[in-house]
């Protein structure tokens, strides 16, 4: 009799269990079997002066206009720096979603820079866990200013400065992203007697989102005074500290900031920063990035840029 009862109960349980199969629960469980990549660790390809792990998307081109005005402490006669500015104009193109190239020209020392950037690792969770994103960066800056007795150039090679970086970033949550940027820079010509040809530096940067479309950014570039007993930089040069805001609207990213560097490329903000925050040598500046899409399927939908 007990057997019978148990059999009856069992038969009841099976039918109840099948009827209650929750289809949605089953689908939710499948979420872990996909890879979730962390998107938009930063809004732009720059944190402020230095690069971020982000690259331009495939077949997209960024036109970046960057300005650094004069020093805020230069007085009312100079309209607190707004009378003058250093400029960098650049075109930066995404060959794939992971590989991009860029070409820029800075008014400071009439410098032309080319760079290549490759997204090596992408932060992800789910099926594959990757705690950080890593992007590799290499650039060449060419000083095209006229040779002078102060800064004579005898060969083209002397005009080149190479920079290599590993950009390592983590998006901790929707708001906070941090990045470490170990850097090696080699300048063929050390412009000052105490400048070393090789400079080793570490960049620390991050962003904190204030709203969906704005964020507060900060960046500090630390260059030790000496490495293995060798002085890296002439003592007049300082480390760069920058604070700023990102504002994103559709295809534009506006970055407004205060920095003690007037250079906007690695060679300049690592090796040639003269300003000191403590002296009030602060430069107001901005980067404006406009993205254009050159995707064929995009053209079909009858629009250029987004």
């Amino acid at each position: 009799m007990r057997k019978t009862t148990s059999a009856l109960i069992f038969s009841l349980i099976t039918s109840v269990a099948v009827a209650q199969t929750d289809l949605m629960k089953e689908l939710e469980q499948a979420d872990d079997s996909t890879v979730h990549y962390a998107a938009a660790t930063f809004k732009g390809t720059r944190i402020i002066n230095g690069h971020s792990v982000e690259t331009v998307g495939k077949n997209n081109m960024d036109f970046i206009i960057s300005h650094r005005f004069g020093a805020i402490n230069s007085g009312a006669g100079n309209f607190f720096g707004l009378d003058e500015s250093q400029i960098r104009l650049a075109l930066e193109y995404g060959l794939t979603d992971r590989l991009m190239v860029g070409l820029g020209r800075s008014s400071y020392q009439k410098t032309i820079d080319v760079f290549v950037k490759y997204r090596l690792l992408r932060q992800s969770s789910g099926l594959r866990n990757m705690p950080v994103s890593v992007t590799l960066f290499a650039s060449d800056a060419h000083n095209s200013s006229t040779s002078t007795p102060d800064l004579p150039f005898y060969t083209i090679t002397q005009r080149q400065t190479y920079t290599f970086q590993a950009l390592i970033a983590r998006k901790f949550n929707e708001k906070l992203s941090l990045q470490l940027t170990p850097t090696v820079m080699h300048r063929n010509l050390a412009e000052k007697p105490l400048d070393a040809n090789n400079v080793y530096a570490l960049g620390v940067g991050g962003r904190y989102k204030l709203t969906k479309r704005t964020s507060f950014n900060a960046e500090y570039w630390y260059t030790p005074k000496t490495i293995g007993g060798t002085t890296q930089r002439d003592p007049q040069y300082t480390n760069t500290l920058s604070l700023g805001f990102d504002i994103e609207t559709g295809g534009h990213v506006f970055q407004l900031h205060l920095t003690n560097s007037r250079g906007m490329i690695e060679k300049q903000f690592l090796g040639q920063t003269t300003g000191k925050w403590s002296n009030g040598d602060i430069f107001y500046g901005f980067n404006v990035a406009r993205t254009f899409s050159f995707d064929k399927s995009k053209k079909r939908s009858n629009s250029n840029g987004y």
Partner: peptide, 13 residues
């Protein structure tokens, strides 16, 4: 999306 930036904004914003 045909445009990576759109995809980013779709998810982020």
């Amino acid at each position: 999306f045909p445009n990576k930036l759109m995809q980013e904004h779709y998810n982020e914003n």
